[in-house]
Each structure stands twice: as structure tokens, then as C-alpha cells.
Design a protein around this nucleic acid. Structure first.
Lengths: 339, 339
DNA sequence: ACTAGCACTCATGATGGTTGAGTGCCAAGG
DNA sequence: CCTTGGCACTCAACCATCATGAGTGCTAGT
């Protein structure tokens, strides 16, 4: 592909991103800035179509990029622009501080992604597999109801109600908690569960019921984030002419609610430490075949624990979206880390 | 309005609910079961239109009920059917047990409402104003980061990260927590905050910073539920021919995201203890003027703490929706109460 | 190698006629 | 007086037709 073809492809994609309609040879010839006639442009476009970068919806429409075209565009032609000062200010304002509450800051990140991009924003909740158990508490709520509370070193808190056969006194529970903290505190959650499992096999004691439930809570904490992700702003898709009113939109919404496959896709993208793009079919996930996913992993204290990003039409302003998603990931990581 | 007119109105509304299209005189004459000609039906319908129960979208369409018509229908003509065995089973399966986690059961209730009705389900989170503070914990997370944890008697847990000027030792924090629990434990949250506010005015101590933050957390717990509600299944509205693709849908979604006015409306409906209906304009809230809201308050330990329900088109099968919303409210209340 | 010209395609939108469901009104009949 | 059949009228929905215009591929001439 020669320089001129590249330039035309770039120009075409930019126009299509801006307008959303197929781009014809006349308009492209005019806007590309080369001194070239529409007929010449047509020849080039025909070549690009043969090579799979473009496609025409029907004979007498202009052409639109394929996912291959977009891929070439972002890899070879795109020049990302730095985050606008205003967006940056907004980001910092919303998620720039060490959060008082993990849930809140995740929610804020999802929201700001969606707002600034006018697409759906998502945040995969932080993985807790390597978390360290900081503190456990058992609190008598009522007769025969005990509330177990787990705290990890990153400051997230989970709780669970346990019903017991016999009533427990405050002192008894405090003792159990002390034992628990002394034995398992300061160790990774995974170890805690593992050891607890082993230890419980041997003894048989009424207090076991509480410990066993505590273990289940720990297991849930690890399993839960296999599934959880926040997503917000799906309704923005209603504004897209390429999706609105069609069956595809329905499918997409259903798929996003399902989350399973999406979570799987995102976990893939957590391996690297860079922004990743899944353009159209590249995700290998049918309901997303008209969409692009831009994702970036975020790290807490140097370790990648989650991923966030946006889901929108293939036709999205990548040069702004990419730095935005990147910046959000950085800030979220910092907000969740030690200052 | 005589018996025949009532019967025809009932029949018309039932048909319109079932089919979603305007009902004409011929069809109504046939399906109403009275031995009556379409012309007669037309006369009756014209009267009903004059009285405001019906309206015709245009000259040669049939007629559809107004919100006045629906109101009369549900108040005077509707016979609610008991909850189907299957729905009941599903409800109990999903929210019939004392929940291990409050959030989870609220979420489950929202989901099941949406699924069973094919409309949007919502749950207003339980009010905590009258909750009793059961336990407070201060946990040193890292150097100069303290996690404050509040537990109420109903078993919900809130936490907040507090940054401190100076590092605190575990013993110090335990002492603070002990003091806190001894002084304020077992008292209603509102009192706790009030007293704390007063007590803090006098002394000036480094530990105050923690207590002050704890107070703020308490305040947030009370304020937060001014705003919070869960809502799910808005996307089901896409299937409705009367909303789909129009600007109204957009408005509705935006309004629901906004929540403010909606929450206000629902708080109104918490006064009684019965199922309440807001049909169309009755809500006094423009974006909802094409919709109906069916809501029912739920109680924990005998006290109304929240409200749940569904939002859907005016044209909804009230005779099934009403018992369903009612039943869900009962079950949710029970799931959150002492067994 | 580029371009002008030309025949061709096809979505889009306007036009107009037809159909069918439905209405209001009136006059005749129980 | 209520009911009913009849009739003229309305109007959305559907369909076919047509013009328009943007766009294409191809070819021949520069």
C-alpha cells in the first residue's frame, strides 16, 4: 500500500468516524487535500476494497471501513492526542483521590468513562486473590445471628450473616475473632482459606460452624470477583444510528447483562499492561461484532488487579478514547493504591 | 355509568392490555359477550369518551383508555388474581430466605421483579434512620490509614477509610473503638451522630479526627439512602411498541438515572402499607406520564423501611402485577427481618 | 498514470391510489 | 326510548411508481 492509499484510507476512516455515513469518492477527493480527481480516488478505493480494508454497503453507496481497515488505522495511521486539559481535570476531580470507599470509586470511574465518551463504560472489579487478610470480626447481631466481617489490606470489607445453632456471647465471639486474627491474620486470603479448610477437617466444635461460614465468606470473596463488573451508560447506544432500533442492540444489551463472556474477554486483556483494542469481530464474540472495546488494565501497588474501558461502535474517535481510557486506568489504580 | 358501560369499558381495557392496539367497536361487540351491535357499542364508547375514560388516537382508529379509564378500571372493575404457584415458588426460591447479605437480597428482589413482569423492577434501599448502632471498629490498614467500620442491628455494614496525621497503633485504635462502643453502642444512629457532634465540640484531641470521620460516616449512612435505589430491567422497555424508538424512551431512561424525583415519588408511597398505583400522569412527573408505577412498601420487624415495585407501560396486566409486587414486598421484608 | 465521460445501480423520498378498519350520524324498527 | 342497520366520511397503512442524486465501474483519451 503506497503513501497515497494510506492517506486516503486514513482520511476516509476519519470522515466516517465523524459523520457515520459511507464516504464517497467525490467527498473524499475533496477533503483528503490531495489534488486528485474522484475517478482516481475510486481506483484506489477499489484496490483497498479488494485488500479487505473497505466495503460498500451496496453498489451505489460510498464505502465504510471493515474491522481490518480500522485495525490498520489504529496500528499504523493513528496519532493519539493527549488528554484534553478539561477531561483531565474532570477525571482527577472524580477519581483522583484516595477513595474513602472502594465501591464508590469504581462506580465513579465507570460513570466518568461513560460520560466523557458517550459510550458504555465498564470497570472490572479488583481481583482479590493476592489480598492479605487484615482483620476479622465476629459480631453478635441477635440471638443466634452472628455477623462475620472480613477486612483486607487494601481496605475492602465484606460481611456475611451466619445463623448458629446456639447463642454466642460477645466474649466468646471476641475470643474466636482473636484466635482467627492471630492464626490467619496477615496472610494471603488464598492461604487462609486453604489452611482453614485443612484445620477444620480435624476438630469438631460448635465454634466450627462460625469458622466454616467465615471460610465460605472468604471463598466467596475470591469467587465473586470472577463475575463482577460494573457497566454503565449502555443507554447511550440508543443514540447510534448503526445500532438503534435493530435486533443487534437487543442482543448486545442481553450479552452485556450476561457478562460471562465479556468478563472472559476482559480477563484476557489483563495480561498486558497496555491499552488494548478489540475491534469488531476481533473479540471473537458475536454480539460485539459491530462494536469495539477499548480496555486498559489498572494496577494497585504495582500489581494488575483489574481492567476498565469502554464499549462503543467501531466508529469511535480512537485518538481521544485511547488516552482517556489509559488515563482513567492510571488514576483509578492510584486512587486505590497507597498514596 | 350503567352496568353495560362498565362491562364494555372493562372488556375494552382488557383487550387493549392484551393486544396493545386501539380497540374498535366491531371487535369489542364481538368479544364483550353481550348481544349487542357495533353501532350500540359505538354509542356507549362515545359516552365513555365524553366522560374522559377513553380517547381515540385519531378519527378512524379504535379507542384506548386514558389514565382516568385505567384508574376506574383498577379501582372498580379489577379482580386481582392470586399469585401463580410458579411465580410464588420462584419468588421464595430467590428471596425467601434470610439473606446472608443485605445488598444481595435487594439485588435479587429487583431482578426477580423485572424478570417476572418483563418490566423495570426497582427497590428502594431500606431506610436506616431508626437503626441502632451495634458495633464500631477501627482497623489500622497501613501507616496513617484507618478503616472505620459501622455495624447496625439489622446487620448492614458500612466502612470508610480515614487518613490520619499521625500513625495509630492497634492498641490505641482498639481503645478508641471500645470507648466508642461503650459510649454510643446500642443507641439509634441518629442519636449517636447528634451526641457525637456535641461531644466533639468540646475536646480537642488527635483521636478526634477519627471520631469525626466516624461521625461523617454515620451521617453518610443516613443521607445515602435518601438517594439510593436499585433499578433493573429498563431495557425491557425497548420491546414496548408504545415507547420504542421515540424520544420518550430517552427521556424516561434519563429520568430514571436521575432518580431524584423518582425517589421522592416513592417516598410518598411509603406512607401507607398497601400496594399503590401511579397511573400515567397521576405521578405528576412528566417523563412517567406514559407509564404506570406499581409500588408496595416493605417492612422489617414491623416497621416500614422501604418500597419496591415495577415501572412499566400504563398498559400492564395489573391483576397479576399487583399481587406479585405485594408478594415480593412481603417476602423481602421477611428476608430482612428476624426469622 | 491520471482523468473525463458515460452508463448503470440503488437508496431515498415524494406522489398518489387503494384498502380496510373505524367513526358519527340518521332514520327505521322493536 | 333504546337499538340497529345503513351510509358517508376519515385516516393510517400499504403499495407501486417515479424522479433524484450520490456513487460506482469501465473505457478511452490525454
Amino acid at each position: 500500500m503506497d503513501e497515497r492509499a494510506r492517506h486516503l484510507l486514513k482520511s476516509l476512516i476519519e470522515q466516517h468516524i465523524a459523520k457515520g455515513v459511507p464516504v464517497g469518492s467525490r467527498q473524499l477527493a475533496r477533503d483528503a487535500g490531495l489534488n486528485i480527481s474522484p475517478a482516481t480516488v475510486r481506483n484506489v478505493m477499489a484496490d483497498l476494497e479488494d485488500e479487505g480494508y473497505l466495503i460498500s454497503p451496496h453498489t451505489s453507496a460510498g464505502r465504510i471501513p471493515t474491522h481490518v481497515g480500522y485495525r490498520f488505522f489504529v496500528d499504523a495511521l493513528l496519532r493519539v492526542v493527549p488528554l484534553s486539559a478539561e477531561s483531565n481535570r474532570l477525571l482527577i476531580h472524580r477519581i483522583g483521590f484516595r477513595a474513602p470507599d472502594v465501591e464508590q470509586v469504581l462506580h465513579a470511574a465507570t460513570g466518568i468513562l461513560s460520560e466523557l465518551t458517550h459510550m458504555a463504560g465498564f470497570v472490572r472489579v479488583p481481583r482479590r486473590a493476592t489480598r492479605i487478610l487484615r482483620h476479622v470480626d465476629f459480631i453478635a447481631l441477635r440471638e443466634r445471628e452472628v455477623l462475620a466481617i472480613f477486612v483486607t489490606d487494601k481496605g475492602d470489607v465484606e460481611n456475611r450473616l451466619i445463623r448458629t445453632e446456639h447463642p454466642f456471647g460477645t466474649a466468646e465471639l471476641a475470643q474466636a475473632a482473636n484466635f482467627f486474627n492471630a492464626t490467619y491474620g496477615g496472610r494471603p486470603l488464598q492461604d487462609v482459606i486453604h489452611n482453614l479448610q485443612r484445620d477444620l477437617q480435624q476438630s469438631r466444635h460448635e465454634m466450627d460452624r462460625i469458622l466454616r461460614s467465615a471460610m465460605e465468606l472468604g471463598e466467596e470473596m475470591l469467587e465473586e470477583d470472577q463475575q463482577r463488573m460494573l457497566i454503565e451508560g449502555e443507554f447511550q447506544w440508543l443514540d447510534l444510528p448503526e445500532l438503534a432500533g435493530s435486533e443487534r442492540l437487543r442482543e448486545l444489551l442481553a450479552a452485556v447483562r450476561q457478562k460471562r463472556d465479556l468478563v472472559h474477554l476482559l480477563d484476557e486483556s489483563m495480561r498486558g499492561s497496555e491499552v488494548r483494542l478489540f475491534i469488531g469481530e476481533e473479540s471473537g464474540y458475536a454480539p460485539l461484532s459491530d462494536c469495539s472495546v477499548v480496555s486498559a488494565p489498572y494496577s494497585v501497588d504495582g500489581e494488575v488487579v483489574g481492567v476498565l474501558g469502554v464499549i462503543g461502535p467501531m466508529r469511535m474517535p480512537y485518538q481521544q478514547i485511547i488516552p482517556l481510557v489509559d488515563g482513567t486506568a492510571q488514576l483509578l489504580g492510584r486512587a486505590l493504591s497507597q498514596s
